[in-house]
Design a protein around this nucleic acid. Structure first.
Lengths: 336, 336
DNA sequence: CAACTGTTGGCAACTTGTTGCCGTCGTGTT
DNA sequence: AACACGACGGCAACAAGTTGCCAACAGTTG
């Protein structure tokens, strides 16, 4: 009726339960012939490890958790795909949890999951540093698109990317840019704003940040309206979803893109190439970020407790996809 | 050092471990004052249940698994969102696993997860009936957008939806439609083709099915090319991703939509409204499907073993979003 | 042939939490 | 005052594995 245990296998194979256990975990502690016999009996009975019993003693669950701040954001697709690809090659299972842009939900989920997985990768976590460090003390943990001293992380090179965006806009004669910021507690939002400002300073154009926006299409309404209150000719939206929302709103309000306003996004999601006008956006090696993060995590679950002195910080390349939403700056667009 | 156990709590509180256990699980088996004392000691020590130890004995894990056939398909967003919403109101955790359109991966994942969750919801499973029944014997299980006699399921009303699509196309004067089918092992693909054919028969227009396509944008190339080999004036793609791929390919080949060819999709994903021309597509109460499936599952994890005689089959409504990709049939488009 | 070494497999203790069963204690009833 | 009963808490067995330690055995060496 219920699932067979090692005891069933042991009885059937005429050995002790401990021998069955060793046949699986410690193959060279049992003779090859015995081991083959046990494995064949186990196969015949359809034996499967009970993950709970195993985890109870060993503390290892052969699962790793991937926490994404919003699973409905297509940006994470490539991250997830890359992570899965890498996990598939190991004996681990990837469990996904969605924080839905809520730090509280993210916190609760991780806390609950902490005892059920061997480690975490956090994608663009919205949690404050203290919380992340708290979890890092419980399980190995790797950050994606977020940095925190002492913890391993893999990020896309947004600093360089922001420079490219600003250079691109400057080359079109724009004298100012507005950054439509992502969530307040998003590390990438901080990072992008800093990089944009620095790049602007360097070449002598104005930079302004507006708001904190939830990076979704509907937020584009508020973001676009706020941008129109300034007299900028170029906006950089925190991500493509927000940028697409901005494009829509601008169209509604009769502002033509890129003639009156240039718009840039981040992530190069699939829809960026579909909207009208097609969106200029910063892409990156997202799948590689996912894969590398899992790679680092698996290293850390094997050898435990290397003190977090010189944890690796991988920075993977980004590149600008220039499409139709950016163009030459208009002169004297004071009237909105 | 390591996490406190009930034994630590018991020692600290001056009671037996069993009393601590009962204080949590069976509150009226211990006196209120004792219970309060235990809970306060537990709080002070930061005690947390070890889910593995608990699961080992009770078999309950307070987690439910949601398996989606391809997490990068935006169609599942609403399903996931609805499911999460409903789960949040319970004490359960939702773990997502992605099958990536591979039945083998789906099978392995479910098999591995089977012992770690209290039940499953399968979204548009690609597994053969036998496998699903096998898993249904192990854990409570609810199907989304798939039907299987004896198992509870929640589906969108694609039958009615297909009728609406066909009526819509017929009202534009189309004399034939081609269905660009989804994966061979997709129940919805079968169901849609059957419904389309019946609807066409009823009103006397031609229906043809082409291929089995992986429902992604890149597959649209092959699908569009195949459609152009016929002399139809209207295609119904298995989902919006495929439809968008078809739109792209048609544009590449200079076929104008909807003048030369009408295109319809399924799911009403967010990009359907962005592409050019905007896509006519069948939407549905997807979030409600997710919520209802979880609801049914939670019912089944509480009361176990009601024999699967009259399991509920919920059918939630669908509706057609008419956009720019459908229009009057062209006359005599024999030349491709 | 005895002593030594290495391989192999079994026993039993251990992981944490749950639960059936039993003893004790206090209160109420007759 | 004796008895009965219910409430409460403890003991110990149990879930399904893992692992330290020991014993048995085979093979090698002196």
């Amino acid at each position: 009726m219920s699932a067979p245990t090692i005891y069933d296998v042991a009885r059937e194979a005429g050995v002790a339960a401990s021998t069955v256990s060793r046949a699986f975990n410690n193959p060279n502690r049992v003779r090859d012939s015995t081991r083959d016999h046990i494995l064949s009996v186990a196969g015949k009975l359809g034996y499967q490890h009970n993950p709970h019993a195993r985890a109870l003693l060993s503390g290892r669950t052969h699962a790793i958790g991937m926490v994404v701040s919003d699973i409905t954001n297509p940006h994470y697709f490539e991250l997830i795909r890359g992570a899965e690809q890498r996990v598939k090659a190991s004996k681990y299972t990837l469990v996904l949890v969605n924080a839905g842009e809520s730090p509280r939900i993210e916190y609760d989920h991780i806390r609950r999951l902490a005892q059920s997985v061997d480690g975490f990768v956090l994608a663009a976590s919205r949690l404050p540093d203290e919380n992340i460090l708290e979890f890092a003390g419980m399980r190995p943990l790797v950050l994606m698109n977020r940095e925190l001293p002492g913890l391993p992380s893999v990020i896309v090179d947004y600093a360089e990317g922001c420079r490219r965006i600003v250079d691109h806009l400057a080359s079109f004669g724009h004298q100012s840019v507005v950054y439509l910021a992502g969530p307040r507690n998003s590390w990438t939002a901080q990072q992008r704003w800093r990089s944009i400002r620095q790049a602007c300073e360097k070449i002598g154009i104005e930079a302004e940040r507006i708001g904190y926006f939830i990076p979704t299409v509907p937020s584009g309404v508020a973001a676009a309206d706020a941008a129109l209150h300034t007299d900028t000719t170029a906006v950089i939206a925190h991500n493509d979803l927000l940028a697409i929302g901005v494009l829509r709103r601008l169209a509604e309000r009769g502002v033509s893109v890129p003639a009156d306003m240039s718009v840039v996004g981040f992530d190069n999601i699939f829809a960026a190439d579909l909207c009208t006008p097609a969106l200029t956006t910063l892409g990156g090696a997202h799948a590689e970020v996912g894969g590398a993060a899992v790679e680092l995590l698996l290293d850390r679950t094997r050898v435990i407790g290397a003190p977090s002195d010189a944890e690796p910080h991988l920075i993977l390349p980004s590149w600008l996809h220039v499409r139709a939403s950016t163009g030459p700056a208009s002169r004297g667009n004071q009237s909105h």
